[in-house]
């Protein structure tokens, strides 16, 4: 039962991972009884299932995912939304209206217009049509404030952490709201743009160092030192100012 790599070892596309007796999991494929990797990533196995955690990928829509998207077009009975997936998503007017759509009365651009950012949930996704979205749940709908940042979708689980440990660390340390779209877009809204920038900095640190361990502590530390430095600078500035005026 040969396995050619240890757990959490870095592999590249085409690397031979295992011989027969194993099942080809995520980001792998089987040919002539041999399992190869299709992505650059960390190899892992559970029982007989061997898979690769990709280090970079694009978003593949899944039913039930919460995503953040941009309205790219208003069509007759709904909107076309870009959710950073290979396919453009669709949001139906009847879904927002909670009744059937009446073209004579309903003015779609007044609800969502081109360029608006919305947070939505995927209700259907198959290969014959693009994913279908809904905003008919609390917390979904148009985004009016905050900043959006983008990370590669495979790093989303790392950003959230075990039972949300990573994300709560950032929220607590920075003191802001973070909404994570499964498609790699993250909404950060805090009391000031400065807080938001700090949170975004932390998020990008996680993306860069996702494949290393002990990250939660390092992120918490980084936020603390950053905050400290900023208050120091501010204090110094204030002192200088008072000295000048005095």
């Amino acid at each position: 039962m040969p396995v050619f790599y240890e757990r959490r070892q870095l592999v590249t596309p085409g690397d031979l991972l295992a011989d027969n007796n194993y099942l080809a999991g995520e980001n792998t494929f089987k040919e002539n009884g041999k399992i190869y990797a299709t992505h650059t990533g960390l190899v892992n196995y559970e029982n007989r299932n061997i898979y690769v955690m990709a280090l970079r990928s694009f978003y593949a829509p899944l039913v039930g995912d919460t995503v953040i998207g941009k309205v790219v077009e208003v069509i007759l009975s709904g909107w076309i939304i870009d959710v950073k997936a290979p396919y453009l998503a669709m949001l139906r007017a009847s879904d927002v209206l909670e009744r059937s759509f009446r073209p004579q009365i309903d003015d779609l651009p007044s609800m969502f217009d081109v360029g608006d950012i919305i947070i939505a949930k995927i209700v259907a996704s198959d290969r014959t049509r693009g994913p279908l979205l809904t905003v008919r749940e609390p917390g979904l709908g148009k985004i009016t404030r905050g900043q959006i940042t983008e990370i590669t979708p495979t790093k989303i689980p790392r950003l959230i952490g075990k039972k949300g440990s990573m994300i709560t660390t950032i929220k607590k340390e920075v003191g802001c709201q973070i909404l994570v779209g499964q498609n790699g877009l993250v909404l950060v809204s805090g009391k000031s743009p400065k807080d938001e920038r700090l949170a975004i900095m932390a998020i990008h640190k996680i993306e860069r160092e996702a494949h290393t361990s002990g990250l939660t502590d390092r992120v918490a530390e980084m936020i603390k030192t950053e905050k400290h430095e900023k208050t120091e600078v501010r204090r110094k500035d204030a002192q200088e100012k008072s000295q000048k005026s005095g």
Binding site: T12, P13, G14, N27, F29, E31, Y36, T38, H39, T40, A54, R56, S57, F58, T152, T154
Partner: peptide, 11 residues
Amino acid sequence: LADAGIPLRDL
């Protein structure tokens, strides 16, 4: 192609 995260049989 590999950097874009596109599934490949081999480089």
